[in-house]
Nucleic acid binder design. Structure first.
Ligand SMILES: [Mn+2]
Ligand SMILES: [Mn+2]
Ligand SMILES: [Zn+2]
Ligand SMILES: [Zn+2]
Lengths: 146, 146
DNA sequence: TATTAAATAGGATTAATACGTATTTGTCAA
DNA sequence: TTGACAAATACGTATTAATCCTATTTAATA
């Protein structure tokens, strides 16, 4: 019994072709797709799958801990299949999210004042700016940010 | 000449009653409002102001550096008038964002590999979980997250 | 194989944001 | 102080994301 089947059983979720398809689309991906993106990706091989189902499935997966919802800046909700502890760089131009790791950052200590006040389930360093592809375009086209 | 007037002049922006109203609404706020929230807040004293103008104004303010856009998890775009270096806790239940500071975190070192690859304009520790108000409700109503 | 609750598809709705444009208005130079 | 003009606004429309509704299908279980 594979990981996916095990997880579904444990949470009392039915194993449907739709859920399997979404799981397969996410597995091994290092991207941070939106529901719409996953839906488009599945359409060729699974034309009958609905966007609503993809969206519900992703939210369900996030709820049971198969994936995470990640931080964006007002754009469509993004999901992250990478459950390792890691950090993010967010490109303000193309909205791509890049993972990075750093041993030093693993030991970030959260102030007691904060841990007392909140129940913390997620912790991550969020960087933003312009990715390599975008910073060049930017210099030509747009005015600088400040 | 006040800070707002100075900033607008420097960036070649006209000083309009709408922009002044939005600026006043943000100033001194420690919240992280959406465009809609600011619009609702202004309606009583400025009934003719349009949501479109509020939204455009906020985006303009973010562009010239008066405010920032902050990370959410798929909810409407949120703005942050607090330009001090600080960090965030995001409540997964009520979506409120809380500021916190920490001298230790000021010196977070970003790996060279990352600074080489990207132009970084923002850096922040992003925590998520449940705020004090929400974690109690949660115990009663909803099933645990995992 | 029959039962049943869960899940899906797809249409409708709501909400957030952006766009198009006629009109208004702040700015600046005469 | 005024007039010209580009910038900004209001508001209607369009687009997009997300959710809701419900008839139908289907996975799980006995
Ligand atoms: Mn990631
Ligand atoms: Mn803040
Ligand atoms: Zn980019
Ligand atoms: Zn809360």
């Amino acid at each position: 019994m594979d990981r996916f089947t095990r997880l579904c059983k444990a949470k009392g979720l039915k194993i449907t072709p739709q859920r399997m398809a979404v799981y397969e689309a996410l597995k091994n991906s290092k991207e941070h797709p939106s529901a719409d993106r996953i839906h488009k990706q599945l359409m060729p091989t699974f034309p009958s799958i609905s966007l609503d189902t993809v969206n519900r499935t992703l939210i369900t997966f996030a709820r049971i801990g198969i994936i995470n919802v990640v931080e964006g800046q007002g754009d469509p909700r993004r999901f992250d299949p990478n459950r390792e502890d890691h950090h993010h760089f967010y490109c303000l131009s193309c909205t791509k999210i890049f993972d990075f790791h750093d041993p030093d950052l693993e030991q970030i200590r959260i102030p007691d004042q904060v841990t007392r006040m909140f129940t913390i389930t997620g912790k991550r360093l969020c960087l933003s700016g312009y990715c390599n592809e975008c910073r060049h375009q930017k210099a030509e086209t747009a005015a600088p940010a400040n």
